[in-house]
Design a protein around this nucleic acid. Structure first.
Lengths: 215, 215
DNA sequence: CTCCCTCTGTGATACTAGTCACTGAAGTCC
DNA sequence: GGACTTCAGTGACTAGTATCACAGAGGGAG
């Protein structure tokens, strides 16, 4: 655990008022998270609000048989909406969060983030905006599962991935299959088809994206 | 539009503080909604927070081809979480809401429901609790779509329906198919199978539920 | 260079769900 | 009672996805 540095926070959360920043500096801690490390597990009690300072987190849902599917990514400047909603009553997490890359998160004790809602306008706005963004992203994910075939879902997934981490997608087909709750062979076949349209080029362990929009 | 009556509100929202109740009485309106009427449409601008006083609303998502699927039901004492999140910036609705039965909703001007967050503890708690509940229900719906076959989803749907409106489900197979984004024939077949287990009895235009837990 | 492990490609097959075509049953209106 | 409409049941077929089995390619470690 480190003491948070003002400049780092300021860079990702420029909208926070000065006194709020001071409080964050005083009362919260920063945690370094390694690639692949779990930040939050289903069933875990939540005692802190989680803000992301650097790196990339994926937030996903896991069922009892170990199947999973991606809900959305969190980028620097985002907060985990679940961790904000649970503050009130020491609730359990409903979701999993894992570091896709090495990351730094700010942990704010729940009772403080709760107090700040009334105390700091910028915090209040930030929390509401976070809820809304996550809700909307979740609805998009839901749409793609409910209404689309796997081919379109894959496309949606790739686009989202490009948005958060660039045109070189460093994932095996297996990992993609996992996040879409599908199977490797099927993903391989669909990717192959995409390659034939010229939208991507396949390599071992990574995918080179050219243009997903024209598919 | 009617002037809200204090007793009605008190009955569904006993947790609200006295002065908050007074404000609701003073500034909000009640709207009667007929069965089948749309309370909210995707793309519509939201200017009020919606609380449900009586009746039953279904909240669902619709895609561009008119397909839909059910997100969750709202019962008396619940609020539409979307309508609370959109307050801040006059945002557009992402969802559809329709009255399943005749219903009464309280409409609270957005700027007030926003002010009350800071002003009334009980309002603030109510809003946060609503977010959380809806988020959780949405996650459940998501799970059932992502991880389950149609047979289990149907079961989940029936259970939920029983919870909000009793063991006589007055729906045609067609309507159920629509809410699950499936087709009538498939739902008919699955219902038939369920009937054979003894869990339900099928009739024209309604389903009699005996026990869904033992399936 | 060789061994080994992981990743990818591919055919065969099975299953789930959606679609089409049709039949009959139940309820409504005249 | 007969005509009409809506709802439900059923068989045949199709499409999409999952599963199984196996082959080959790429890269790392010795």
């Amino acid at each position: 655990m480190e003491i948070p540095q003002k400049d780092d926070i300021l860079k990702q959360f420029p909208q926070f008022e000065q006194p709020l920043l001071e409080e964050i500096l005083k009362h919260s801690t920063i945690r370094q998270v390694e690639e692949g490390e779990e930040v939050m597990r289903t069933g875990q009690y939540i005692r802190s609000t989680v803000l992301l300072l650097s790196g990339l987190l994926k937030v996903y849902r896991e069922d009892d048989e170990g199947n999973e599917f991606l809900m959305y990514y969190l980028e620097p400047g985002n907060a985990c909406a679940m961790s904000m909603m649970c503050t009130a009553r020491d609730e359990q997490s409903q979701i999993m969060a894992k570091a896709v890359t090495e990351a730094e998160v700010i942990l704010i004790p729940s009772h403080l983030s709760e107090q700040w809602l009334a105390k700091y306008k910028s915090w209040h706005n930030f929390v509401i905006a976070s809820y809304r963004q996550r809700f909307e992203e979740l609805l998009q994910t839901l749409d793609s599962i409910a209404f689309k075939g796997l081919d379109e879902r894959l496309l949606f997934y790739l686009k989202r991935h490009v948005k958060v981490s660039g045109k070189e997608i460093r994932l095996s087909h297996q990992q993609i299959a996992l996040e879409l709750n599908s199977s490797r062979e099927v993903i391989s076949r669909l990717l192959k088809k995409l390659e034939q349209t010229g939208a991507i080029t396949l390599h071992r362990n990574y995918i080179e994206v050219h243009d997903l929009e024209l598919v």
